[in-house]
């Protein structure tokens, strides 16, 4: 039997894999639900980025509905998203907070914002991914909708576009505001 085991192994591994695939089918690959939905925002106390005085502390996000956007100067998709965030800021519909994730160089994030404009009300620096891990971030950009009680209500993965904003995110913000 022991001699046969190596020959049986591929079959056993395949059976295991098959079970996993089965469970993965039928899900919409574009919605990665976060286990943090409807959970209070983890306790964050992030230092400010260079050139700003305030960082980002969880308590600051309570009191009104806001967006929390994960970005980095190294992230191409963030750059694609950025002009829309600027428009959103100009329209003044909802405060946008940012977490500047995984910058190798402390000045890279601020330089990027100086160049492209800064849509964020509060920004916390997260060079070592502590906040990103606590938030279960899968990549940048990612945007959380936080309600007035500081509870995470929605998570969007990938750049926000006008279309996504009007169809998906804004209705949620409006609903949360109504309570």
């Amino acid at each position: 039997m022991l001699r046969r085991l190596p020959y049986l192994l591929p079959l056993i591994v395949l059976a295991g894999l098959a079970g996993y695939f089965w469970s993965g089918l039928g899900r919409d690959p574009n919605t990665l639900p976060s286990v943090l939905i409807d959970q209070p925002l983890p306790e964050l106390a992030l230092a400010p980025i260079a050139g700003r005085e305030r960082g980002l502390v969880t308590a600051d996000l309570k009191g009104q509905v806001s967006l929390l956007n994960i970005f980095g100067s190294w992230c191409v998709a963030c750059q694609a998203e950025h002009p829309f965030l600027m428009q959103l800021k100009a329209e003044g519909r909802v405060p946008i907070h940012g977490i500047n994730w995984r910058e190798r160089d402390a000045d890279a994030g601020p330089a990027w914002l100086r160049r492209l404009g800064d849509p964020y009300t509060l920004i916390g620096a997260d060079p070592d991914s502590r906040a990103a891990i606590a938030l279960g971030v899968t990549g940048a950009p990612e945007t959380f909708i936080i309600d007035a009680a500081g509870v995470i209500r929605y998570k969007h993965i990938g750049p926000i576009t006008r279309d996504i904003w009007e169809k998906k995110l804004w209705p949620i913000v409006e609903r949360l505001r109504r309570g």
């Binding site: 046969r4 020959y7 049986l8 591929p10 079959l11 395949l14 059976a15 098959a18 089965w22 089918l25």
Partner: peptide, 17 residues
């Protein structure tokens, strides 16, 4: 496709075992 994969890989591996 998953069924095909199981059938062909599984069949081959069973024969191998």
């Amino acid at each position: 496709i998953l069924l095909l994969l199981l059938l062909f890989a599984g069949g081959g591996f069973a024969l191998f075992a």
